[in-house]
């Protein structure tokens, strides 16, 4: 478990190749760290700092500034539901409340099995397809609770299977 893992070497090189200096690659590498650890963990920050030849303080500062980096451990599926006005007009706020109840968590909470984290976010630019959410940076659109329940069950089954 680390960015030094072989599977990342190509993507790290690609990130460095894009920019004139190492420091500029900090954001793509933070994404990799988040992918590896599920969140931007202290180990991840240190590894990115070493790779980019920066002080870890500066790396953490960048991770803290941008909302797409999570500085807290997250579930395997990070569900970000847009509840802004346009989405709310299509029932996104009710959908969000029901989703939380279904999973039994508060805003920003993670389910006990460690699979799902739910939070509300500002506009994701898909108002016409609300209710919608972003799961690990991929959009799921035109949602309702039936669709969600089926999807949740499917993911739980996958996880149970993987465990065996």
């Amino acid at each position: 478990m680390a960015l030094s893992d072989k599977k990342y070497s190509q993507r790290i090189e690609a990130a460095f190749a894009k920019y004139p200096d190492k420091r500029s690659a900090v954001m793509p590498l933070l994404y990799l760290a988040q992918e590896e650890y599920g969140w931007v963990s202290p180990e991840g920050i240190q590894e990115v700092a070493d790779l980019c030849d920066m002080d870890p303080t500066q790396v953490q500062s960048i991770a803290g500034f941008y909302t797409m980096y999570s500085e807290k451990p997250k579930g395997k599926y990070w569900l970000q539901v847009c509840t802004d006005l346009a989405c709310a007009l299509r029932g996104a706020d009710e959908f969000y409340e029901e989703l939380k109840a279904e999973l039994g968590v508060e805003d920003g909470g993670t389910t006990e099995d460690g699979l799902f984290t739910v939070e509300h976010v500002m506009c994701l630019a898909a108002c016409d397809k609300a209710p919608m959410l972003q799961c690990n940076f991929h959009f799921m659109e035109n949602l309702d609770m039936d669709k969600m329940r089926a999807w949740i069950a499917e993911k739980r089954a996958e996880a149970a299977k993987a465990k065996k």
Partner: peptide, 21 residues
């Protein structure tokens, strides 16, 4: 030239941090 202090978060949550060892 020891950039061991930085801002963390933004807006009203902005705070000074250090993460050096």
């Amino acid at each position: 030239g020891d950039d061991v202090l930085a801002f963390h978060e933004r807006g009203r949550s902005l705070q000074i941090i250090t993460n050096s060892e």
